[in-house]
Design a protein around this nucleic acid. Structure first.
Lengths: 100, 100
DNA sequence: TGAACATATGAATAACTGTTCATTTGTTAA
DNA sequence: TTAACAAATGAACAGTTATTCATATGTTCA
């Protein structure tokens, strides 16, 4: 008794593809997982993942552009946190598939 | 009262990223949408999307490798259909985000 | 068998992407 | 102000990817 799933406009499909591209990188996935529990500064994330500050900063910008994380400034640091309820759901749905 | 979302092994994260990469292309999204309703042959998909047969075939292979579509042979044609319940759910979850 | 058709494959190319390095911007506290 | 620190940015590079063209494989039917 499902509604037919009509194909969205090409424009929307491009946006959708762009969104999934964001999830299609292990570094960004790791960052998102890191933020599942709590907000973290750029430096904290970089250290906890053992990666360059610059790399993390670049990827956080991608996440922010796609409205998946938001920031809170506190002194010199900038704290990032998840900005969307769908993030967890999308990742968990993907995980379901990967884990059979 | 959620369980803590522990970060999966790196190995699993790579697989997860690879899965999302598959969703991160508008041609593959269009193919999957086409298969939402019903199975279709390669030629049908190519024609309905107005793309090269070769392009569709290449992308169907990607979808198949990732266990997202399955095939059924009938004479000269090969009919593709969705092979996973998660496909719709993942796409719809992404659409929710894209459409605000 | 051979012709006609459907699909798959391989090589080539152009475009895109993640990381690094070097530098800049922005903030705090002396 | 300045020094010290945190984060952002830009250019460059290596690696990846989607598409096309040409061709091969596989199937049916006469």
């Amino acid at each position: 008794m499902n509604k037919p799933d009509k194909m969205p406009e090409l424009e929307v499909l491009f946006e959708l593809a762009d969104l999934f591209k964001v999830f299609g990188d292990s570094t960004r996935l790791r960052i998102m997982y890191t933020l599942f529990e709590d907000e973290h500064s750029v430096g904290e994330i970089a250290e906890s993942l053992g990666m360059e500050q610059s790399t993390i900063s670049h990827q956080l910008r991608v996440l922010r552009t796609n409205k998946l994380v938001k920031i809170r400034r506190e002194g010199k640091q900038i704290y990032y946190s998840l900005d969307d309820d769908h993030v967890k759901k999308i990742i968990e749905m993907g995980l379901d598939h990967v884990l059979e």
